[in-house]
Nucleic acid binder design. Sequence first.
DNA 1: GCCAACGTTGGC
DNA 2: GCCAACGTTGGC
Length: 155
Amino acid sequence: MKNYWLFKSEPAVFSIDDLDASKNATTFWDGIRNYQARNFLRDSIKAGDIVFFYHSNADPLAIAGYCKVIREGYPDHTALDKTNAHYDPASSEQNPIWFMVDIKLIKKFIKPVTLDILKRESGLKDMKILQRGNRLSVTSVSKDEAQIIMKLAKA
DNA sequence: GCCAACGTTGGC
DNA sequence: GCCAACGTTGGC
């Protein structure tokens, strides 16, 4: 069964346009250093799942498009790279702590679905991203929520 | 730039 | 194992 997710990214660091410009519009989602998000990446996110791409710390704050998971969880090699900002000395090739998936851009929304719009939609009031204080950068999205978001993107 | 919320760290 | 201190996130 196909599941839905939402990944946050600061466009100043990596935007949906950066993804669009990547080879095959595909990237590995590296640098996640939070255990709850790691567990999703390692255990729950499956090939074929849909990922909404959210721009945080941005203008506008919005879901900018969506992607498809084309490779399931595998070790995040940036954790082993001493020169990388996300280097973690506790991780090793034998015992990787951090994981990532590969995603491919499917569609960049013509009109991004802004946070304001999401907030006004009663069917989305339980979305993780709308909960006060939620900082988790990888969250699950229900099928109903996903359908509403898709509809809003076409509106 | 502010600051609330949260996860992590480390002393005890 | 508790919890205060700290660093980070991210909307405003």
